[in-house]
Nucleic acid binder design. Sequence first.
DNA 1: TCTTGACCTGGAGTTGACTCCAGGTTTTAT
DNA 2: ATAAAACCTGGAGTCAACTCCAGGTCAAGA
Lengths: 141, 141
Amino acid sequence: MNDQPTSTFTEDSTYTIKQAAGLSGLSEDTIRYYEKISLLPSPDRTGGGHRAYRQTNIEQMRLIVCLKKTGMPLEEMKPFLSAELENTESHPELYALMLEHRERILGQIESLQQVVSVIDQRLSAGVTMVPACSTNEEKSD
Amino acid sequence: MNDQPTSTFTEDSTYTIKQAAGLSGLSEDTIRYYEKISLLPSPDRTGGGHRAYRQTNIEQMRLIVCLKKTGMPLEEMKPFLSAELENTESHPELYALMLEHRERILGQIESLQQVVSVIDQRLSAGVTMVPACSTNEEKSD
DNA sequence: TCTTGACCTGGAGTTGACTCCAGGTTTTAT
DNA sequence: ATAAAACCTGGAGTCAACTCCAGGTCAAGA
């Protein structure tokens, strides 16, 4: 009901799992699940053992929601998130990974745009016509 | 190894399931599975009961591959494919569905573009910053 | 003809991504 | 102080989307 953080000082304010869920769009169970599979880091705990999330955690969750919409499997998201707080330049292998992901996503955008144009064609004429749709699956057996 | 259709005349040429798999990027098992769940229509059979696919079937498969890349669940694809050969104007409810899907896909494209810009920011500076990423999940409890 | 590879069906098994308890502890509002 | 709400863990259950047999039939080349 109230998604305001606990503290008034933005610096060290924390959120309960329920607030985090409300702010990210994930469910509480899902957040715990993501922690279990190490997609999200284990957050700090209160004296009683309750999870206390920070703003950066919320942002990570939002990034996950964002990537999920694009159909990316959770495993593939890990490098994105583990590098979240790091300087990219100090991780050359992650740099390459990012570039790779960037290309893949551009390909996905292209796929989607082609789907849109298929729809548009059907909407305007009821025509059957499927374009190549960037078939980057090359088979050779 | 040979993805050429059986007949020389393009009109009524057919493909084996293996050829269809090669041309579409799906596996043979997956094609049979899609038929079982009625995502793909039951194709004609040869005298001996082997599946014989036509060009339109191949195109349907390619459309599925295309939509799959965008993370669309198989159930949601059905209206797309069942209307494949029909005149859209005669199905007003499908028309609305198409428009709806179109909007959703445009939203996905936006999401993806934001992911690309997140990546670009990280590539250029190692900065942590996650944009809103079109949070169309409105929570109110 | 006959062997080999491709195909068939039906069903079991797998993986990813949750979702839902049960039974207990902590926090918060009155 | 105490009841209700929120949280905890561990584990079982679910659903989509495959994938992989087993045990048999069909097709094409030597």
